[in-house]
Structures are given as C-alpha cells and as structure tokens.
Computed example of a mutant assay.
Amino acid sequence: MPLQLIDEDGVPTSLGDSIGIDVGLARSLHADMVLARRLDHEALALQRQGELHLWLMSWGQEAAQVGSVRALRDSDTIFPSYREHAVALCRRISPADIMRQWRGVAHSGWDPAESKVHINSLVLGTQTLHATGYAAGVRLDRSDEVVMTYFGDGSASQGDVNEALNWAAAGNLPVVFFCQNNQWAISTPTSKQMRTSLHVRAAGFGLAGYHVDGNDALAVHAVAQDAVARVRAGGPPALIEAQTYRMAGHSSSDDPKRYRTDAELSAWQAKDSVLRLERFLRRAGVEDSHFTDLKEKEEAFAATVREECKALTGDGLDAVFDQSYAEPHPVMEAEKSQYLARREQAVA
C-alpha cells in the first residue's frame, strides 16, 4: 500500500498521528494547490475560447507536484515533462510564461537559468535522460545539488526512461525520478502497460524505491524530503511512484469519456487532493479567514491568468532565422533576406 498520512476524509492515519503533522506546512501546500488548479481550469477555458492552441491538464495531480517540489531547495534543478504547471508556479514562474508555449508565440516560456526549471519536454521521457546527464555534471562539480525529474506511468514504458534509470544508478548520480502514476497513458490503463508496480522496478536498477499516495500532499512531501535528503547525502538515486489520477483528458484534444467510466472518475473524485487537505485543515481548527482570503486570492489570480494570456504576443517569423543556430549562419542569413524581401513585396 502507498504511504499515506491523511485519509480521504482529511483524518490523520496512524502513521500521520505518530510522526505529527505540521499544520503550517499543510496550509502552505493547500494554497499552492488551489492556485495551481485554478490556473489549470482557466487555461482550459482559454483554450476552448481559442486563446491557447493546446493545453495539458494537471487537474488531480496537484498534491504530487506541490508536495514534491516543496521538498527541494530553490538551488535544485528540475526537469519536467509537459504538465507540471503546479511545479512551475511554486518556482515563481508566471502564468504568462507557463502559457506562452501553448499560445504558440514562443518555443518556451521561461529562462531555465533563472527558475532552475528546464523547459517542457514534449518528447516522451526524454527529460529523464536530460536530468541524468545534468546530474552527472553536478557530480563532477562536487556540488550538493539534487536533480528531480517528473514523468508519467506511460513514459516508464519508454526506452529512454529505463536507460536514464540505469545510468543514474550505475553512476550513483544525485537525481530523484518522480513518477506521477495517473493511471492512464492517454487511453491505455496502467493495468495493460505493466505487470509490476513502478516502484518495485527501483531495486532492479539499484535505486531507492518509494510508493506514496499521490493525492496526499503531506505524504508526498514527507517521502520526497526523505528521498532528496538521502540523495543529497550521497545515497543512491531514488524513484518515487506517486499514485494519483488525471481528472481531465490527456490534453484539451482528448475525450476521456471514450475510454474510462463515470464510476472510475467518481471513485477518484472522492479522493480529491485539494478537498482532502481542506478537510484536514478545518478539522485542525484553521480559521475560516484562511479559506476566505484564499478564495479572494484565487479570484484575483484567475483574472491575472486571463489578462496575461490575452496580452501574449510573439516575435515575427523572421526571428526563426536568428534562433535556429547559436552563431550566425550563412544559409539562415540568406533565407532571412529572401523572406524579408518577399514580405516587403507582399506588403507593396
């Protein structure tokens, strides 16, 4: 069974009671999750209105993302896949920068050097190899930095991911592999993807394995803290499998009703991570003003998301020729001149 500190009703488990739960941390994680979910809903609505070309939802996976990223130092580097919007928000990446790529006005929305979050990787699983290579550099630099990379259960079937796990273990590299097992690889259920749980594979590679309830933000945070501390101290790289659920479709182009049942969705809605943490906070005696203030902050945040999205503009097509190579390139310069000449002719 995955590790759990609070159950679906927000009641601490026996383990949660024994180790004690930091209510202040719970409040902070809850606020992060509420804003992340609102970004997700607003962005999906903007996509339906034609303001974004595509959107990959993280609805339902907020606890896994927020709980894990808050266990890192700001100096630790993150390699996401393409739906880690909550992670980006926690690293102070603005909604505009998160949406820029999905509006089609830039190849990426933010500077990885500033946020220590690498750009989104849409090629399935490739970010795990990037993270492993970066972690090798960290080891050579003799730094105490830890690298975390996110991937899904579907990506775990990719050769790239398995190569990354093996290289990380063989080199004892400072990387934590965080799998958000959201039960579906687009329309293929986990039950048809694999015969053994992902965290069980860790031992075969020589990794430290963890299994956690991905809808329990406090449990995710505790597990991630332990894994990160062990890796930072020189222990073997770690693999965390967080059992969670993708509440929406794989993307804004996907219709999940074609492959999953209403009963399954309802069962997971009862385990909703945001409501679970709110129930815990209310049971813990957190004052109503926390929720009232958070609701006001959420509404103001939603307005900002809408405004920032509609204000996004991109460079002209001529920028493509300047950005194809790091250094000036004669072929690109010639093609740019041809393009500009034809554009002037068309205007004339």
Score class of each variant (00 low, 15 high):
2 P>M: 09
4 Q>V: 09
11 V>E: 12
11 V>Q: 12
17 D>E: 15
17 D>L: 15
17 D>M: 14
19 I>H: 02
21 I>D: 01
23 V>F: 08
23 V>T: 15
27 R>Y: 01
29 L>Y: 03
41 H>Y: 03
42 E>N: 00
42 E>R: 12
44 L>R: 08
45 A>L: 06
47 Q>W: 02
47 Q>P: 00
49 Q>F: 00
50 G>N: 00
54 L>N: 00
55 W>E: 02
57 M>S: 14
57 M>H: 11
57 M>A: 13
61 Q>Y: 05
64 A>R: 02
66 V>R: 02
66 V>A: 11
67 G>Y: 01
73 R>S: 13
73 R>G: 12
77 T>M: 15
79 F>C: 06
81 S>D: 10
85 H>A: 09
85 H>M: 09
87 V>F: 07
91 R>C: 02
93 I>M: 10
93 I>Q: 07
93 I>T: 08
98 I>Y: 03
100 R>W: 01
102 W>K: 03
106 A>F: 03
107 H>W: 11
111 D>F: 00
113 A>K: 14
113 A>M: 08
114 E>K: 13
116 K>N: 15
121 S>N: 14
121 S>C: 13
122 L>Y: 14
125 G>S: 01
128 T>C: 10
131 A>V: 04
133 G>R: 05
134 Y>Q: 05
137 G>Q: 07
140 L>A: 15
141 D>A: 15
144 D>K: 14
144 D>Q: 13
145 E>C: 08
147 V>E: 02
147 V>Y: 06
148 M>T: 07
152 G>S: 05
152 G>T: 06
155 S>W: 03
156 A>I: 07
157 S>W: 00
162 N>D: 11
162 N>W: 08
166 N>I: 12
167 W>V: 15
170 A>M: 14
172 N>F: 03
173 L>C: 09
173 L>I: 10
177 F>H: 12
178 F>Y: 15
180 Q>S: 09
191 S>K: 13
197 S>P: 02
206 G>H: 04
207 L>W: 04
210 Y>P: 00
210 Y>F: 13
225 Q>E: 12
227 A>W: 06
228 V>E: 06
229 A>S: 13
230 R>H: 09
232 R>N: 04
232 R>T: 07
239 L>S: 03
242 A>S: 10
243 Q>S: 11
244 T>N: 07
245 Y>N: 07
248 A>W: 10
252 S>F: 10
253 S>C: 02
255 D>A: 06
256 P>F: 11
257 K>P: 01
257 K>Q: 15
259 Y>T: 08
265 L>R: 13
268 W>L: 09
268 W>P: 07
273 S>N: 14
274 V>G: 10
280 F>Q: 10
286 V>Q: 05
290 H>D: 09
291 F>N: 11
291 F>P: 05
295 K>L: 11
304 T>H: 06
305 V>L: 06
307 E>I: 00
311 A>G: 07
313 T>D: 06
314 G>A: 03
318 D>S: 14
322 D>H: 07
324 S>D: 02
325 Y>R: 03
328 P>C: 01
328 P>W: 02
329 H>Q: 13
332 M>S: 15
335 E>G: 00
337 S>A: 15
337 S>W: 03
341 A>M: 05
342 R>M: 11
343 R>T: 04
343 R>F: 09
343 R>C: 10
343 R>P: 00
345 Q>K: 14
346 A>Q: 12
347 V>C: 00
